[in-house]
């Protein structure tokens, strides 16, 4: 269960600058390569495919030539408070770690009841409807640091928590027992070509993220739910912020009108 007010020293979080993001998809591809995410022949069925990081495309709904689009990459929000998925899991297969703020899981403990998926407001979690299968020799590129899941379990973005372990191992090898800035970075952040994604300890002013989250451009998805996501977004466009359902009062009217303006 999450704490009422986060007191822990380290809270890993992410800031994604939507002004910079071009929706190129490199973060998602890097994530899926890193985390041994399976793929299927028909990936167009978005309701059943597996994506730890999904890129949503939203439009401002204006007519040509005033139409604009924005891309919202959506990893796990790593909710800090009332973490919805953690409290509902009947088998304690998912957990909020106070020392890092990561919402992690044991896929081999999951019984596949999918209650967490119903609970997650961000559609972050994916169920393994099929056994993962890699064609031909594709198994050879699988990352040994992440165990492939089996069918019948739910999985989600972990902020590449295995990279945290690796970073610690590397630090110890160098005779340190602490992590330095930049030691631990999730695959998506590393892959972003325009540095639209930032990662680090939200409590540590040494990290850029700690400052960025105070920017007037910063907002989070579905803030009204008070899940306190640790993934922040930056945008200078009001309409993008409205898409995030950031402001209950303004959203009310905008909500229904803008329903049509979604791309994916």
């Amino acid at each position: 269960m999450s704490t009422e007010s986060p007191q822990q020293s380290v809270r890993y979080g992410m800031v994604i600058d939507l002004d910079k993001c071009t929706g190129c998809g490199n973060c998602a591809v890097a994530c899926h390569m890193e985390n041994n995410v399976p793929f299927r022949t028909d990936e167009s069925d978005k309701s059943r495919n597996m994506a730890w990081l999904r890129i949503y495309k939203v439009k401002n709904g204006a007519e040509y030539p005033h139409a604009r689009v924005a891309y919202i990459p959506r990893p796990c929000m790593q909710c800090d408070r009332h973490t919805p998925c953690v409290s509902v899991c009947p088998a304690s297969a998912t957990n909020y770690d106070k020392s890092t703020g990561l919402v992690d899981q044991i896929n081999t403990r999951c019984i596949g009841c999918r209650y967490c998926m119903a609970a997650c407001p961000y559609m972050v979690r994916c169920f393994n409807w099929w056994d993962p299968a890699w064609p031909a020799d594709a198994e050879k590129y699988l990352n040994p640091d992440v165990a492939p899941r089996m069918r019948g379990v739910v999985e989600k973005c972990t902020f590449c928590s295995h990279r945290y372990i690796q970073a610690k191992n590397r630090a110890r090898q160098e005779g340190r027992n602490y992590l330095e800035k930049g030691d631990y970075i999730p695959a998506c952040v590393e892959a972003c070509p325009v540095e639209a994604m930032h990662f680090g300890d939200l409590n540590d002013p040494e990290y850029e993220v700690a400052h960025l989250i105070k920017s007037p451009r910063a907002f989070r998805l579905l803030e009204r739910l008070h899940t306190e996501p640790k993934v922040y977004y930056l945008s200078s466009h009001e309409w993008v912020r409205r898409w995030a359902d950031n402001d209950a009062v303004n959203t009310q009217s905008a909500y229904s009108q803008q329903r049509q303006g979604v791309e994916s």
Binding site: A93, T94, N95, D97, S99, T100, L102, D104, Q105, I106, N107, T108, D145, V146, A147, T158, S161, H162, Y164, I165
Partner: peptide, 8 residues
């Protein structure tokens, strides 16, 4: 005893 400390 966080999950990810021992599980991948």
């Amino acid at each position: 005893t966080a999950c990810f400390i021992c599980h991948k």
